[in-house]
Each structure stands twice: as structure tokens, then as C-alpha cells.
């Protein structure tokens, strides 16, 4: 094990809508002997602004984040898309400014949760909070942005009390896409409907993802359809056996 201390970047969606995810991460990391701090005054990584083309505004928000995590040795992020924003877009956004080098350093020190657990800590043995059959949805930014499909599957595959079943079309988008979900709600919803039909076909009781955006979208659809399937963040599922 290499990390003794890590800072949690809770992200706007995680903070406002899914606080249990942050709580689970704190507990998980602590059990692994990693002290967690949460730098105060966090808001958002700026991805929603960036994706909608408001690059200057996104850069202003990003500069705040860089300053907040300046002292952190490791930064852990529960969402693949936010981790991707910090790792892939921050350096470019601030390239020609005084904080350019700091942005590059932050990018190198930042890890999406499943990657941090598997690739940094080498921790892969956990107990399921909800036992039974689970399936995994690849979030687009984690899969194609950070090229990560193995770590979450390894964690779920070894998870005590859970059986991981493959999801047909696991690598296909859930239709969230930030503002896309409300700009073209009909298209977004039809993409979601196909995703959820695949989910139901697996017979899993629990759908796992590593991105708050996808979870919001997929859970929104599952609840509306009164499905018995629950969409959970990876951290919530790993946080069993307390």
C-alpha cells in the first residue's frame, strides 16, 4: 500500500444528491488504513460548463478546484466524468496560465475511485452491502476517457456475497450526457429505455456504475418504471460487512 492519506473530491452531484456515496467512500478508505480529508468549500469540477461550450467559465471554476486540492497527495473522485475532467481537461484549460503546472500536478494525483482502490491501493476484497446478482454499466468517460473497464469488474467479481453477471451493451451510453438529457429529453429517454431493457434482461437486482450522472439517469428511469432493480454507486455496494 502506498497511500496513507487521500482527499475526497465529492463532486456537485455527489454532494447534493448522493451524500451516502461520499460517506461510503470515507468508511471504505478508512478501513483500508487511508485517512480521508475533505477540503472545504467544494462546488463542482466545471464539466457541465465545459461540455456546453462555456470554456472560459469552466476554466474559472477549475482554477478554484486546483487551489482547493493544492496540498492533497491523492485526490479520489467518485465519478469517472469528473475524474476525466480533472485529468484530461484541466491541464489544457490552464495551460497558458500561472497555475498550469499545478493543474498538471493535480491531474497526475487524481484518481477515480475504482482505479484508486485497485491500481493504487491494490485492495480488491470487499463484502457486498446488498447480496445477490449485480451487473455493471460502463460509464462513458471512465471507459473511453480513462480507458478503465477492468477495475470495477475486478472489484465486483471478487465481491463477497455478490454474483457479477454481464450486461448486454454494457459499454453503450445511458443517455445522460449532462445538459443533453434535458435539451433532447425524448432522445435521452429512448437511449435510457434500451439500456434499462438490457439491465432487466440480466435478472440482476442491483445495477452498479461509477458515475453520479449515469446513476441519476438510470435510477430515474428505474424508479419511474417501478423496477425492482436498484442502481447503486460502486462505493455503496462495496461498503458491506460493517
Amino acid at each position: 500500500m502506498t497511500a496513507r492519506r487521500a482527499s475526497l473530491m465529492v463532486t456537485c452531484l455527489g454532494d447534493l444528491f448522493f451524500p451516502e456515496v461520499g460517506v461510503s467512500i470515507v468508511r471504505l478508505l478508512r478501513k483500508l488504513g487511508v485517512a480521508v480529508d475533505v477540503p472545504a468549500d467544494q462546488t463542482c469540477c466545471g464539466l457541465p460548463l465545459f461540455n456546453s461550450g462555456y470554456r472560459g467559465d469552466a476554466a474559472a471554476v477549475a482554477r478554484r478546484t486546483v487551489a482547493l486540492f493544492k496540498e492533497s497527495e491523492y485526490v479520489v473522485v467518485p465519478s469517472g466524468s469528473c475524474a476525466w475532467m480533472v485529468k484530461h481537461e484541466y491541464p489544457g484549460l490552464m495551460a497558458d496560465t500561472a497555475v498550469g503546472p499545478e493543474a498538471r500536478e493535480l491531474a497526475a494525483r487524481t484518481h477515480e475511485l475504482s482505479q484508486f482502490l485497485v491500481r493504487v491501493l491494490g485492495a480488491t476484497e470487499f463484502t457486498a452491502a446488498v447480496p445477490g446478482r449485480v451487473t455493471y454499466h460502463d460509464s462513458c468517460h471512465l471507459l473511453r476517457g480513462l480507458h478503465e473497464s477492468e477495475s470495477p469488474r475486478m472489484l465486483l467479481g471478487k465481491l463477497r456475497g455478490a454474483e457479477l453477471v454481464p450486461l448486454p451493451g454494457a459499454d453503450e451510453c445511458c443517455g445522460f450526457g449532462g445538459s443533453f438529457a434535458v435539451r433532447l429529453p425524448e432522445v435521452s429517454s429512448q437511449i435510457l429505455a434500451k439500456k434499462l431493457a438490457n439491465v432487466e434482461s440480466t435478472g440482476a437486482g442491483c445495477l452498479v456504475a461509477c458515475d453520479a450522472g449515469c446513476l441519476m439517469q438510470m435510477n430515474g428511469g428505474l424508479k419511474r418504471a417501478k423496477s425492482r432493480v436498484r442502481a447503486l454507486h460502486l462505493a455503496e455496494l462495496l461498503d458491506g460487512g460493517r
Binding site: G14, D15, F17, G22, V38, M216, G221
Partner: peptide, 14 residues
């Protein structure tokens, strides 16, 4: 219209 939305948590993580 097609999806539920989670409410803002009674206490945010922070």
C-alpha cells in the same frame, strides 16, 4: 417527464 429525480439531500455530504 420520463424519469424521477433525486431530491437535494436533507444534508449534503459537505
Amino acid at each position: 417527464r420520463t424519469r424521477d429525480l433525486p431530491p437535494v439531500a436533507s444534508r449534503t455530504f459537505q
